[in-house]
Design a protein around this nucleic acid. Structure first.
Length: 328
DNA sequence: AAAGGCGTCAACCGCCCTCCA
DNA sequence: GTGGAGGGCGGTTGACGCCTT
């Protein structure tokens, strides 16, 4: 006998999620947190497999997700990490804040693979393609492509950081002869040092923890005017779920203070939770969610917002017991 | 304007791993 | 030690939109 299916598939809905289903799922997770996924569809009133709910949440609805194309820097990180880890997309994703394994996998297959092949690099081995395989001879390769190829091997750094990096790298060279991979962490002197420097610069990288049920990061735009109300925005000027949240009349501070971990106070949590629930009851908001689902034409400015470093994030915590969200 | 090709990506499938009774 | 449940992961599929002819 084969393994039993993860759920009874009879009568279960498949295919694209509707805004209403999204609402139900988010509603449920905001209320109860991420618990047993198998029970989620039943409790949330969804005709979906638990697995489908988990995927929908982790790949699309999670509030800390970045949307839009991978930045050049992220792309280079993916290539670098792929060279070390292979197709371990979740590991790679854990190094890229706000990106999912599915997103990275798709981007790899649709963009990066072609890019590397075009430049004569084998996307599997990350070595120059052998002669029997079609490749562009370097002699005949356009200069700019040769430059691209070189740049792919190096992650761009802020010039201010470059000198710091050089110094740190020298130290690293003395302690580590070569890159090594451990079970859970890529140990690449060059790469990790760059990561350290990025952290110094306020850009969160390195080991990005998988989101815990009680800890969710919210990218944060500059503090919105407190006069903005939930009912005053429309889908026409709102392209992003996260942005929309920030436009609302919440007392959400963007000045996240790590030492302020005491902020998990229930009163604030309840206030914010009520705001969020009110938000989900707002039909415009669901409209925006639908817009988000079909969001495929972000303009440059918005993409910048989406790519904003996590240093600009406020931190949204979900009380693991009450399931209520609170914000620092 | 219509048809076909192509690219993209959300979602599904099935295997694997971990945990726990 | 063993088997089942639940979740994670990587590969694949299919719907949809855009582009070309």
């Amino acid at each position: 006998m084969g393994r039993q299916p993860c759920c009874d598939k009879v009568g279960l809905k498949k295919g694209p999620w509707t805004a209403d289903e999204d609402k139900k799922l988010i509603n449920f997770i905001l209320t109860n947190g991420q618990c047993c996924w198998r029970a989620v569809p039943k409790l949330a009133g969804l005709l979906r497999c638990g697995k489908s709910c988990r995927l929908r949440w982790t790949n699309y609805l999670r509030p800390d997700l970045k949307r839009g194309l991978l930045s050049e820097y992220e792309e280079k990180m993916v290539i670098d990490l792929h060279a070390q880890l292979g197709n371990r997309w979740s590991k790679i994703a854990s190094h890229l804040p706000g990106r999912t394994d599915n997103e990275i996998k798709n981007h790899w297959n649709t963009h990066i693979k072609k890019k590397l092949k075009k430049m004569g690099i084998d996307p599997v081995t990350h070595k120059p393609l052998s002669n029997d395989q079609p490749q562009i001879s370097k002699q005949h390769q356009p200069v700019e492509e040769q430059q691209d190829q070189q740049q792919l091997l190096e992650v761009d750094l802020d010039p201010k950081l470059e000198s710091q990096f050089d110094q740190k790298n020298k130290e690293a060279e003395t302690s580590l002869e070569s890159s090594t991979i451990t079970e859970d962490k890529v140990v690449t002197p060059l790469f990790d040092d760059r990561m350290d420097l990025m952290n110094m610069n306020g850009f969160c990288t390195d080991e990005v923890p998988i989101i815990e049920p009680d800890e969710i990061l919210m990218p944060c735009a500059p503090p919105a005017s407190s006069t903005t109300s939930a009912s005053s925005y429309s889908s026409s000027n709102s392209t992003n779920f996260l942005e929309d949240l920030q436009l609302l009349d919440f007392e959400w501070s963007c000045n996240y203070d790590d030492n302020n971990s005491d902020n998990n106070n229930n009163e604030d949590n309840n206030i914010n939770y009520n705001n969020i629930m009110a938000l989900w009851d707002d039909e415009d908001f669901i409209g925006n969610l639908d817009f988000l689902i079909n969001d495929d034409d972000l303009d440059g400015d918005r993409k910048q917002v989406l790519d904003a470093p996590l240093s600009q994030c406020s931190r949204m915590l979900m009380d693991s017991e009450s399931g209520a969200y609170g914000l620092f």
